[in-house]
Nucleic acid binder design. Structure first.
Length: 956
RNA sequence: GCGCGUUUAGCUCAGUGGUAGAGCACUCGCUUCACACGCGAGGAGUCGCAGGUUCGAACCCUGCAACGCGCACCA
């Protein structure tokens, strides 16, 4: 047994044990194990990322779950990794390259060179966050670390793309999408955040062509789009305007042209002026109106949000917001601007770039979500559980109104769409032999004429390839699709992952689609693509579906919902059984933590200052289920203080030497021993239930209370009477009880405090006599404590009454300390106390009280008659006197007792009033009535004694 | 606009029908032989507001308010 230093120094201990765990392979998951499986996949952090407090919260929870599962005898897989974070990563690297002067624009480098640079950057900096997770103590199986752009993972993504295309769920469409003018890419609806803006509403006039002198007033927030207006719409039932429908107005800006006045139900009477400018190119709703009325589409914005020549000479080249001001000025100058008023409206912002998005007509790849019904059902019927469960409703709502997902991004970093295409007409078809073969093959199998117009006779070649709807044909190594275009040409698409096919395609003149896929289109496959899918691996067999998923509610749609759908579609099963949604970490003002606000402390600094265990414990203590977490460094300090307490309690135990975990002899158990064993039993149950229900904060609170307020404050202090005594047999027994409690406590704490518990587990010798795999090597595999069996309860002589004496003693001690305080006697000075017991009291028990009270001498005297005015407190064991030689103030003592009597009387009045109410007696359950009667008796008894004590002081 | 959540001590939060709690902060005393990152004692709450149900409400019901979140969105 080695001497423990006086203060806990986490740094060396943490790195020592983490290296030891890794060296012993403690984190490795064995699919061949016959233990029951427990698995979690990490929500892959952004590869550009650094550890934040959000990661600390999220990963500490996962680590607690994983470590406890190991102690419960499960074979645990916690699978780590990162995602490639398309936009964010490309932005970061481009920015760096621009700063270094390596390029001005990505086109300077070109696609291949830039992607190579990003890979270079990723290899160099991409693993930072995973290293940081090690500092936190995360017990991930690092040998299985995955990245969403690993070759195998990329193959999964493209395979899924091809499969969904074959199923007719992925299609290419020209429609209005959310366009980010900063990142120059389309975004999904989920990546658009609506923000309220203080804008302006511009009211401007247009003249009716057919009725010169008649004007319509239109309200708009975007006058810069007037040059793109191709109609003016009114509601068909709006009597103000019905006579104008079918006529025209002069457009107010841009080329002076006539645009029609049309009737459309989309227009509401009472909003604005009831007249709507219709801009099909720049507004989703207007685009729909345009389709209904076959309006032309005029695009006046460049991809990066500048005005085109179509906007007119005055606006051309201007940035969109400058153009807005300018447009208003132009209207004003033309006398068309009626008024401008402040207006609050919601504008969609790009989540990543934080700039207003533009609705933009473009061709993109879309996905109709698969397996929607089973995905909805599993949460609705409870086969997958959400914690807190209110998220189930949010999920269901989203799944019900689900829209097709725009999955293509105009970026270079990501999974490139596995589609090769070529535009063909009759001539090119005949001229290109390889193409000819491909297309003929397709047409034969799709049973359609070739583009050349020849009808191919079907040749029966035995097994037919997949004959799919919409003329899509699936071969073993490719999917083909011939799409007629409006001008009579065709687009021929080949989807394939086969490198031989790809080289043929490229030689034949096909080009690959330039787009990459949304990062979430790869991470939605995470639970199975990380485990070797599509092979039927032993890992999948053992660990899929996973047990728990821990994530933030902010990605419930982005990630969780989509993973569920992918899970059903590709594994035929849900991907995880429970989803725990963490809160969001905020600062004391309730703001989210962010770099730009500077309110986001670096967890590594906190670990350096307080230790990883302290950070974990402090974070978990302050993170209740279902609510956001208010971050305060005080919580980490609390964690650090707790570790020190644990450390010093261990030191105290070690100072007393003796045998480690000696035998506990029931005949030697003191009332204090029984009391702490009963408390241990309570806390084992409490912590286990709390963890089963994902109440991490409650579990940590229970442990904190048990160890500090019960074990240290009472049990250790009470045990000093024995440990500093002379009865060696009793002393050994007390140490045995301490070891028993301590070794259980360390195990209960291990998931929260992995490092300090491992250190103490070993240094205190608890690992010594255990089998290697059950705590002998490491506390990580020590058996999770269970509440006592009835045999154990019997052995320790524990029943409902066994802790009554200890409780009575502690109440007596508190009463005595209260007396000291009342009479300003410092706690560190010995004082004489006399206890006049109401029953028998063993010498040992009196000794414990004396110790806890710092009483010397402590006299137990049933016949004690106090000097008049001696301060006295009523305790469950008897009357406790604090004799104050020469300082007795009878009046003061009378007043003190009088105050107490007043309190007791108030309580007595309360309970008597209830009992006197006839309704109460008649209607209340018998148990409650009995409880109140007992309460009355107790208060009355106390009252009588206090009165007696006051009377004994005489009349003054 | 629809939906969800929160509102309890100065702060952060427990407490789902029967005597209002914890940690931190605060006040007082204490360097006592595990620990001052500590020990002991203490003060502190109209349980958001208004009704209702009940013998009894922090807790159940209704309405309202404030704050937060999600969804939708009218130019």
């Amino acid at each position: 047994m080695t001497e423990i230093p006086k203060t806990y120094e986490p740094a060396a201990i943490e790195s020592k044990w983490y290296a030891d765990w890794e060296a012993k392979g403690c984190f490795a998951a064995d699919p061949a194990s016959d233990k029951p499986a427990y698995s979690i996949v990490i929500p892959p952090p952004n590869v550009t990322g650094h550890l934040t407090l959000g990661h600390v919260l999220n990963n500490t929870i996962q680590d607690i779950l994983a470590r406890r599962a190991r102690m419960l005898g499960k074979e645990v897989l916690w699978l780590p990794g990162t995602d490639h974070a398309g936009i964010a990563t490309q932005n970061v690297v481009e920015k760096t390259l621009r700063k270094e002067g390596a390029m001005k624009h990505r086109d300077d480098l070109g696609r291949e060179a830039l992607v190579a640079k990003i890979w270079e950057w990723k290899e160099k900096y991409g693993g930072i966050i995973l290293k940081q997770l090690r500092a936190l103590g995360a017990s991930c199986d690092w040998s299985r670390t995955r990245f969403t752009m690993d070759p195998e993972y990329s193959a999964c993504v493209q395979r899924v793309f091809v499969d969904l295309y074959k199923k007719g769920l992925i299609y290419r469409g020209k429609r209005m999408v959310n366009w980010c003018p900063a990142s120059l890419t389309a975004l999904s609806d989920e990546e658009v955040i609506m923000k309220e803006q203080n804008g302006l509403m511009y009211h401007f006039r247009v003249e009716v062509v057919e009725e010169p002198g008649t004007f319509l007033t239109i309200a708009t927030t975007r006058p810069e789009t007037i040059p793109a207006d191709t109609a003016v719409a009114v509601n068909p039932n709006d009597p103000r305007y019905t006579h104008l429908i079918g006529k025209h107005v002069w457009r107010a800006l841009g080329e002076r042209v006539q645009i029609p006045i049309i009737a459309d139900n989309h227009v509401t009477f009472d909003f604005g002026t009831g007249v709507l400018k219709v801009t099909p190119a720049h507004d989703k709703a207007d685009y729909e109106i345009g389709l209904r009325h076959k309006l032309p589409v005029i695009d006046v914005l460049t991809p990066d949000g500048k005005m085109t020549a179509l906007a007119g000479a005055e606006l051309e080249g201007m940035e969109r917001f400058a153009a807005r001001k300018k447009s208003a000025e132009l209207l004003e100058a033309a006398g068309a601007l009626e008024k401008t008023e402040p207006y609050k409206n919601n504008v969609g912002f790009s989540e990543r770039a934080d700039v207003p998005i533009e609705p933009r007509l473009s061709e993109q790849w879309f996905l109709k979500y698969p397996s929607v019904e089973s995905s909805k059902a599993c949460v609705a019927d409870g086969s997958m559980r959400f914690f807190p469960d209110r998220w189930a409703k949010v999920y269901d709502h989203w799944m019900t109104g689900i829209q097709d997902w725009c999955i293509s991004r105009q970026l270079w970093w990501g999974h490139r769409v596995p589609v090769w295409k070529i535009r063909i007409n009759g001539d090119s078809f005949r001229a290109n032999l390889a193409l000819n073969v491909l297309v003929e093959d397709h047409c034969q199998n799709a049973r359609i004429p070739t583009p050349a117009g020849d009808y191919q006779v079907l040749i029966n070649r035995g097994a037919w390839p997949d004959q799919l709807e919409n003329g899509v044909v699936g071969f073993a190594n490719k999917v083909t699709h011939l799409i007629p275009l409006s001008n009579g040409d065709f687009e021929f698409r080949v989807l394939t992952l086969d490198s031989e096919v790809i080289s043929i395609l490229e030689e034949t003149g096909f080009t690959q689609d330039p787009d990459v896929l949304d990062t979430w289109f790869s991470s939605w496959l995470w639970p199975f693509a990380t485990m070797g899918w599509p092979e039927k691996t032993s890992t999948l067999a053992k660990f899929y579906p996973t047990t728990d998923l821990v994530t933030g509610p902010d990605i419930i749609f982005f990630w969780v919902a989509r993973m569920i759908m992918a899970g059903y579609e590709y594994m035929g099963e849900l991907p995880f059984k429970n989803v725990y949604f963490t809160g969001i970490i905020r600062d004391k003002q309730g703001r989210k933590l962010s770099k730009s606000l500077g309110n986001s402390p670096d967890p590594l600094d906190l670990i350096a200052k307080y230790g990883a265990d302290a950070l974990r414990f402090g974070t978990m203590r302050s993170a209740p289920l279902g609510t956001d977490v208010i971050y305060d460094e005080k919580n980490v300090e609390l964690g650090r203080n707790f570790c020190t307490k644990l450390w010093n309690a261990a030191r105290f135990r070690q100072m007393h030497g003796g045998e480690t975990e000696g035998e506990i002899r029931p005949d030697f158990l003191t009332s204090d021993d029984k009391w702490i064993l009963a408390r241990l039993n309570d806390v084992i149950r409490e912590v286990s239930i709390a963890l089963d229900e994902y109440r991490f904060s409650d579990a940590s609170g229970a442990l904190y209370r048990f160890f500090w307020s019960e074990y240290c404050d009472w049990y250790v202090e009470a045990s000093k009477a024995t440990l500093y005594g002379t009865d060696e047999a009793r002393k050994a027994n007390t140490l045995a009880v301490m070891d028993f409690v301590f070794s259980h406590t360390l195990r209960l704490f291990h998931p929260y405090l992995p490092f300090i518990t491992e250190e103490l587990w070993n240094s205190m010798g608890f690992a010594n006599d255990l089998p290697a795999k059950q705590g002998g090597d490491t506390i990580m595999f020590a058996v999770w404590p269970k509440p006592f069996t009835s045999e154990e309860l019997g052995y320790f002589c524990l029943d409902e009454t066994s802790d009554a004496l200890a409780k009575a003693k502690y109440a007596t001690v508190e009463a005595g300390r209260g007396l000291r305080r009342d009479f300003n006697l410092p706690g560190n000075k010995k004082n004489r106390f006399i206890l006049k017991p109401s029953g028998a009291l063993e010498a040992h028990e009196a000794n414990v009280i004396a110790n806890l009270l710092n009483a010397e001498p402590f006299e137990v005297d049933a016949a004690f008659t106090p000097t008049k005015g001696t301060p006295v407190a009523l305790t469950p064991i008897g009357e406790l006197f604090l004799p104050l030689e020469g300082l007795i103030d009878v009046a003061a003592e009378r007043e003190r007792i009088g105050k107490e009597i007043t309190k007791v009387e108030a309580e007595l009045d309360k309970v008597r009033a209830k009992l006197a109410d006839e309704n109460f007696a008649a209607k209340v359950p018998a148990k409650v009535l009995e409880e109140h009667r007992q309460r009355e008796i107790d208060w009355a008894e106390k009252h009588a004694q206090l009165v007696k004590m006051r009377d004994a002081l005489g009349a003054s």
